[in-house]
Computed example of a mutant assay.
Amino acid sequence: MIILKTRKEVETMREPNRIVAEILQAIGEAIRPGTTTGELDDIATKMIEQAKAVAAFKGYRMRNQTPYPAAICSSVNEEIVHGIPGPRVLEEGDIVGIDVGVVFKGFVGDAAKTFAVGEISPQAKKLLEVTEQSLYEGISMAITGNRLMDISGAIQEYVESHGFSVVRDFVGHGIGRKMHEPPQIPNYRGPGWNPRLQEGMVLALEPMVNQGTWRIKLLQDEWTAVTADGKLSAHFEHSIAVTDNGPLILSKVS
């Protein structure tokens, strides 16, 4: 069952998403060759504490996994999502996807962005540009009266038109008082549930795009997903509200 939010609840959800957006901005400013992913997690942890919010990811678990140990996910190069921050040093030419979630005033904010570390290759730059634009292609279809798969199809068509592939093992999701609410939102058009979009839906759209195959492997830490062929992957995410006046992006700096 999709949980529709009132206009007041949507306004409240701006606040945790603003915190997330500010954290992503600060992390982006700190990323440079020589920075460790653990240092980026420290930035997020400090900002979450200062905002009197709670890290939504820390302690989170899916299925029988061990609890997630950090405030952010930091996924470098061939890592798709759920990379665990730590001593890894970022190097010139790397790309790093940062995913942040917080709980504030009873609601969850969630967003992600992939950053360049110094100068990156033209191929990596194109991957980042296409992935980010595919997110906005999906957002543009998040209007009342459309179907969920209109979002999914717009993302897939844009990505594949540029020669990349969309990950199928991980999807976007509804979001609200819980981080993962119905519906699931694939980044490809499929045969699944295809409800009509209504005002009050709040959705976390998050295309994950690979240079090569869409297939993945899961590392032994039970969290980090990597591309099956070792090629690069990028990840962008916004939490948005469906309104009668069009999609409203919640996860941006005011």
Rank of each mutant, 00 (worst) to 15 (best):
Y68F: 13
T66P: 06
F170I: 14
D150M: 12
I143R: 15
L218I: 15
G145F: 03
E15L: 14
T144P: 00
H82V: 02
E237V: 13
K5V: 07
P183N: 04
S75C: 06
T227P: 01
E39N: 10
Q156E: 14
V171R: 12
Y158L: 12
R61P: 00
V167R: 07
W193T: 11
P183L: 05
E92M: 05
E11N: 09
T131I: 08
Y136S: 02
L205N: 12
E132W: 04
L197S: 06
S161M: 05
E49P: 10
A204V: 08
H238G: 02
R61C: 02
S152K: 01
G153H: 07
H180Y: 15
P69E: 07
G246D: 01
P69K: 06
E92V: 09
A112S: 15
N146F: 01
D94A: 04
T6N: 03
K126Q: 11
T131H: 07
H173K: 10
I151W: 05
K105H: 14
G138S: 07
S233T: 09
P33R: 14
V10H: 00
T114I: 10
A70Q: 12
I185Y: 01
E15M: 11
E206V: 10
M141I: 09
M201D: 05
I19Q: 02
A142T: 06
E181W: 06
Y136R: 07
V100C: 10
Q184S: 14
D221V: 07
S233C: 13
D41Y: 05
V96K: 12
R215W: 04
I43T: 08
T243F: 01
T114A: 05
T37D: 06
R215Y: 06
I48C: 03
N146M: 01
I155G: 02
T131V: 07
V81L: 12
I84F: 00
F57K: 09
V209T: 08
E119I: 13
E157A: 08
G34V: 07
N17Y: 04
I80W: 02
N17G: 01
A234K: 03
D41A: 09
K113T: 15
M62W: 05
F107W: 12
K231A: 01
E237S: 13
D94T: 07
D229I: 00
S239H: 03
G200N: 08
V159T: 04
P69A: 07
W193D: 10
I19V: 15
I185N: 05
G212P: 02
S121A: 08
V102F: 02
G163M: 02
E9F: 04
T144Q: 06
N17H: 04
A51G: 05
A53T: 13
L205D: 13
G59R: 11
S161K: 13
M1D: 14
V171E: 11
G200R: 09
L4T: 06
R32K: 15
K105W: 09
A53I: 13
G93C: 07
M47V: 09
K252L: 04
R61A: 13
I84T: 04
T243N: 01
V171Q: 12
M179P: 03
L219R: 11
P247L: 07
S121W: 04
E22D: 02
P191M: 13
A71C: 12
I216P: 00
S74R: 03
T243S: 08
L40E: 06
